Lab assay of single mutants.
Amino acid sequence: DELEKRVKKIARKLNLSLDQVEEWLKRNNNDELVEAVKRLKKK
């Protein structure tokens, strides 16, 4: 979905793993995208 695409884009842009992106999003209080990261990690 759109949020998952955004997460992947962030990960690529910042050259981070999904775990690192998740931490980064949590620090930025971006719950919506944190949920998207969790969905991606399950895939």
Rank of each mutant, 00 (worst) to 15 (best):
E23L: 09
V34Q: 07
K5H: 12
V34M: 11
K9P: 01
A36G: 01
E22F: 08
N28Q: 12
K26E: 07
K5R: 14
L25N: 00
V21R: 00
W24T: 00
E4H: 03
N29H: 13
K9S: 13
K26Y: 06
D31K: 12
R12C: 15
V37P: 02
V34D: 04
K43N: 07
K42G: 08
R6C: 09
E32Y: 09
K9F: 15
R6I: 15
L18F: 06
R6S: 08
V7W: 04
K42V: 10
N29R: 09
K38T: 05
E35I: 07
A11K: 03
K38V: 08
V34W: 10
N30C: 15
L33A: 02
D1G: 13
N29D: 08
R39I: 06
V37M: 04
E22Q: 07
E23M: 07
K38G: 05
L18V: 03
R27S: 12
E2Y: 13
A11R: 05
D19G: 06
N15R: 12
L3V: 05
E32T: 08
K9C: 15
E23V: 09
L33S: 01
K8F: 13
R27G: 11
N15D: 05
V21Q: 00
L40R: 03
D1S: 12
V7S: 01
K41G: 02
L25V: 03
L16K: 05
R6D: 04
E4D: 04
D31V: 13
N30M: 15
V34I: 13
E35W: 03
K42Q: 14
Q20L: 08
N30P: 03
A36I: 08
R27E: 10
E2G: 07
I10K: 01
N15Y: 07
N28E: 09
K26N: 08
L3P: 04
E23D: 11
W24C: 08
D19C: 11
I10R: 03
I10P: 01
K5F: 12
V37F: 04
L40A: 03
N15K: 12
E4S: 05
R27L: 13
K43S: 06
L3E: 09
R39C: 10
N15H: 13
E4V: 07
E4I: 12
L40Q: 02
E23A: 12
D1K: 12
S17V: 03
I10M: 07
K41S: 02
E23P: 00
K8I: 15
Q20N: 04
L16F: 10
E4F: 06
R12E: 14
K8R: 13
A11D: 00
W24Y: 14
K42T: 08
K38N: 08
E35M: 09
R39P: 02
R27Q: 13
K43M: 08
L14D: 00
I10W: 06
K8C: 15
L14M: 11
E4M: 09
N15I: 04
D31T: 14
V7G: 01
N29M: 09
L18H: 01
Q20G: 09
K42F: 06
V21S: 00
